[in-house]
Write a protein that binds this DNA or RNA. Structure first.
Lengths: 338, 338
DNA sequence: TCTGGCACTCGTGACCATTGAGTGCCAGGG
DNA sequence: CCCTGGCACTCAATGGTCACGAGTGCCAGA
C-alpha cells in the first residue's frame, strides 16, 4: 500500500497537471505544495508511483503526468465532490425555471451543463420504458385513417398514423379509446402489451381488423420509441482538450454523433450514484482519451434517464462531479413539478 | 471584362486548390490543364486576376489561392451544378425511404447530406408558419386540466398543458373541440388568430373563462413554436477544414450551437433556387471562412423549410450544390407522400 | 500578344549548438 | 531506516545558419 505522503504527491500531481496541462516535475511540486519534504524525496515517491502505474513520463527528461489508473485512484480515494457555490446554484435555478415543455427542459439542461463544466454535455430524454402512460388518444382523420397519440407522464408525446383495413365508426372509436385508456393509463410501458392483449375480442366482428391494427401500432410505437433519444451541447468546448486536440477531436466528434454509442455509454452508468469512466475504461475507442461523468436523474426516487459530460481525462473531477450532480437534482425537481 | 482565357485560368486555380489544398503556381497549372499557353503567360493572367481581387498569394513567393470574390465568380459564372450519379441517387432513395415520422425524416436527411457532401449538414424542420392545421385535440386529464394537442400537415405534433380557471364538462369540451376544428383545420397558422377570435362568445357564461384560456394557449403555442427548430450533423467533417482547422473550428462550432445564428443564416437564403454564401458574405463572424449552400424544400411548389451544408470556402461547389439540391428534392417528395 | 530567360523573394527543411528542466543514483546525516 | 543535497546524464525545445526550390515580376525578342 502507498504511504500517506505518496498519495498526497499523487493528488498534487493531478491537481497541478489539470491546472497547467503540462508534465509536473519534482521541484515545481515542492514549490507549489507544502509537502514538507525536498524534491529528492518527491522524486523517490514519484518513482514508486510510476512503478505502480499511477503516473508516467512522456519523455525521459520530462515531468510526470497521471495515467488513467492514477486518475482512477484520485477520483476514488483522494477527491471529494465539490459543492457548487451559491451563485452557481442560483444560476441553475434561474436558467431551468421557465422551461415550457420537455424539449425546452432538456435543451436548457444541456446548455447549462455545458456552460458550468465547460465541457461537452449529454442529456438523455426521460426514458419511455420507465415512464407510465398518461393518455392515449385516437383521432379519426379520414374514414379509414386514425391518428394515434400517446402521452407520457414525463410530458412526451408520440404520434403515429394508422391506415385501417376498414372504416371504423366514431362510436366504436370512442369505445376503443375509453377501454384502452381505462386499461393502460397510469401503467408502465412495459406492462402495456399484456394489458391490451385480449382487447380485440370484445369488439364487433367488423371492427376487429381495425382494432387489432391500432393496437399493433401502439405496441410498435412503444418498442420503437423506447429507443432513447438524447441531446448534446457544448461541442465547442472540445477545443479545450489540450495541445493535441486536433488529433483527439475527430474520433470524439464521431462518437458524439453516434447516438447509439452515447446511449450505451450512459446505459453503462450506475442507476444511482455517480459514475465516472476514465480513459480506456470507456469501451468505445474514440473515447479512450476522454472521461465520462454520468448520473441518473428522475422526478422521484427512481432514475428515469441519465445525464453527464464528456471531457478530457485531464479534467477537474471534483468540480465536474459537483456540477453534474447539482444539475441532475434540479432537473429532477423540475420534472416532478410538471 | 476578363478574357475567356483568364476565366479559364481562374477555374483551373479553383479546381486545383480545392483538390490539393495548396497554393497553385503557374507552372503546375500549365502542366495539369491544357491551357495551350506557357507559364509566363499564365503569370500575366494571374497578375491581372490578382489586381481584380479574384486571387491572392499568401506569401510573396507562393502560388495563388482564390479569394472569396474569386469563388463567387467561379460559382456564378464558371461552375455548373454537378448532377449526382445514379448510384448516389439510389442511395438517397434507400436511405430516406422507410422513415417513420418527421423526426426520423429530418434525422435521416441530415445524416445523408453530411455523408454525401462530407461536410456539416443543417436541416430545418418544416416551418409552422407556412404549414396548416391538420387537427386540434383537447383532452381532459383532470377536472380543471386540459391538454391541448396541435397536429400539423407536416406531421409535427405540439402539446401544451392548460390549467383552467374552472372545471369544464366533457360536453362543453367536445363542443369546443368540434367548433375549433371546423374553423381551423386546413388553414394556415398565420390565419388562426382571426378565425378563433369570436369563438368565446358563443359559449355559456360559466365556460367562457376556460375557453378563452384554451384559445390563448393555442395562440401562444402557435407563436412560440413558430420559433423554428433544426438539426445538424456531420460535425466530425469539420476536421477536414484544412491545415489551419484548429483555429477555424472553434468559432464554427460555437456558431453551430447557436440555433439562432443558423436559422438566420438559412433565413437569408432565397426561398426558391439555391443560395451560396461565401466566406465574408456570411454576416456571422465565426463563419467568415466558411461557405453555406442552402436551398428550400417543400412538399408542394412552396418551400416549407430549408436545408443546406456548411463547409470551408475551399469546397467542391458543383458537387456540393448537386447533392444539396438532390436531397432537397427527395425530401420534398417524401413529405408530399406522407 | 505571347514566350523564354533571368534575377529575386521567401518559406521550408536539414543541421547543429545551446539551454534548462527534470531525472536517477549515491553518499552522508538525522 | 528515511530523508537530503549533490552530481552527472538525458533529451525536448529553442534558435540560428544555410542551401534548396517553387514561384514571382519584369524585360527583351519573336
Amino acid at each position: 500500500m502507498l504511504s500517506e505522503r505518496r498519495l498526497e504527491v499523487l493528488r498534487a500531481i493531478v491537481q497541478d497537471y489539470v491546472g497547467t496541462e503540462e508534465p509536473v516535475g519534482s521541484k515545481a511540486l515542492t514549490e507549489r505544495h507544502r509537502l514538507g519534504v525536498s524534491p529528492a524525496t518527491v522524486r523517490n515517491d514519484m518513482a514508486a508511483l510510476e512503478d505502480e502505474g499511477f503516473i508516467a513520463q512522456p519523455h525521459t527528461s520530462a515531468g510526470r503526468i497521471p495515467t488513467d489508473k492514477g486518475y482512477r485512484l484520485f477520483v476514488d480515494k483522494l477527491a471529494g465532490v465539490k459543492p457548487l457555490s451559491t451563485p452557481e446554484r442560483r444560476a441553475i435555478h434561474n436558467f431551468l425555471d421557465g422551461a415550457v415543455d420537455l424539449d425546452d427542459v432538456v435543451g436548457r439542461t444541456v446548455r447549462l451543463l455545458a456552460q458550468l463544466t465547460r465541457q461537452v454535455a449529454v442529456v438523455q430524454y426521460p426514458s419511455l420504458t420507465r415512464s407510465t402512460v398518461r393518455h392515449v388518444e385516437l383521432l379519426s382523420l379520414a374514414p379509414a385513417r386514425v391518428m394515434l397519440v400517446l402521452i407520457t407522464d414525463t410530458g412526451r408525446v408520440e404520434q403515429r398514423m394508422v391506415d385501417c383495413p376498414a372504416p371504423i365508426g366514431e362510436n366504436s372509436l370512442a369505445d376503443l379509446r375509453a377501454r384502452l385508456n381505462s386499461r393502460v393509463v397510469g401503467r408502465r410501458f412495459a406492462d402495456v402489451p399484456q394489458l391490451v392483449q385480449d382487447l380485440t375480442d370484445s369488439f364487433e366482428q367488423e371492427d376487429r381488423g381495425t382494432v387489432s391494427t391500432v393496437l399493433a401500432t401502439l405496441l410498435e410505437t412503444l418498442v420503437e420509441e423506447t429507443e432513447e433519444r438524447l441531446m448534446i451541447g457544448g461541442t465547442a468546448n472540445l477545443t479545450r482538450f489540450g495541445h493535441d486536440f486536433p488529433l483527439m477531436i475527430r474520433p470524439v466528434l464521431e462518437a458524439l454523433e453516434e447516438q447509439v454509442v452515447l446511449l450505451k455509454l450512459l446505459g453503462e452508468a450506475k442507476d444511482s450514484g455517480m459514475t465516472v469512466r476514465i480513459g480506456h475504461e470507456n469501451a468505445h475507442e474514440g473515447l479512450n482519451s476522454t472521461s465520462v461523468v454520468a448520473v441518473g436523474y428522475g422526478s422521484g426516487d427512481e432514475a428515469v434517464a441519465k445525464l453527464g459530460v464528456v471531457g478530457p481525462t485531464r479534467m477537474d473531477y471534483p468540480g465536474t462531479m459537483g456540477a453534474v450532480r447539482a444539475v441532475a437534482r434540479y432537473v429532477g425537481q423540475i420534472l416532478a413539478e410538471s
